[in-house]
Simulated scan of single mutants.
Amino acid sequence: MYIVPEKAVADLVTREASFDAVEKVFAAMASGDAYNFPVVREAIGHEDALYGFKGGFDRAGLTLGLKAGGYWPNNLEKRGLINHQSTVFLFDPDTGKVKAMVGGNLLTALRTAAASSVSIKHLARQDAKVIGMIGAGHQAKFQLRAALEQRNFEKVIGWNFHPDMLPNIEKVAAEAGVPFEAVDLPGMRDADVIISITSAFAPSLMADHVSPGTHVACMGTDTKGKQEVEAALLVKSTVFTDEVAQSITIGEAQHAVAQGLIQESDVAQLGAVINGTNPGRTSDDQITLFDGTGVGLQDLAVAASVVEVAVEKGIAIEVDF
Rank of each mutant, 00 (worst) to 15 (best):
E264Q: 14
Q263W: 00
F240K: 11
E252L: 09
K236C: 02
A256V: 06
D242W: 11
A258V: 02
G260I: 11
K236A: 13
H255K: 12
G251D: 04
D242H: 12
Q254L: 09
I248C: 05
A245L: 06
V257R: 07
K236P: 02
G251T: 08
S265I: 03
V244Q: 01
E252P: 07
S237R: 08
H255R: 10
V244L: 01
Q246P: 11
S247D: 04
T241H: 08
A245G: 03
Q246S: 14
I250W: 00
H255V: 12
I250T: 13
S265V: 10
E264F: 00
A253D: 01
E252T: 11
I248Y: 04
A245H: 05
G260Y: 09
E264G: 13
T249Y: 00
V239Y: 01
Q254E: 06
S247F: 02
A253C: 04
A253R: 02
T241C: 15
D242A: 12
L261C: 04
Q263S: 15
Q259N: 14
L261Q: 14
S237A: 15
V244S: 02
A256M: 06
V257H: 07
S237W: 03
G260F: 09
S265C: 05
L261R: 14
I250D: 00
A256E: 05
I248P: 08
D242M: 12
I248N: 04
A256W: 04
S265D: 15
I262D: 06
S247M: 04
S265K: 15
I248T: 14
A253M: 01
H255M: 09
D242C: 13
G260H: 11
G260V: 12
E252A: 10
E264A: 12
K236W: 00
E264D: 08
I262P: 10
A258G: 12
L261Y: 05
T241S: 15
D242E: 11
F240P: 12
A256Y: 05
L261T: 02
V257W: 06
F240A: 08
D242G: 13
I262K: 09
Q259P: 04
Q259H: 13
Q263T: 15
Q263D: 14
V239N: 10
E264N: 08
D242V: 09
S247T: 03
G251M: 06
A245Y: 00
V239I: 10
H255P: 00
E264H: 04
A258M: 07
A256G: 10
Q246V: 05
T249K: 06
T238M: 00
V257P: 11
S237Y: 03
G251H: 04
A245I: 03
I250Y: 00
A253I: 01
A245R: 07
Q254P: 11
E243A: 13
D242K: 12
A245E: 13
K236D: 12
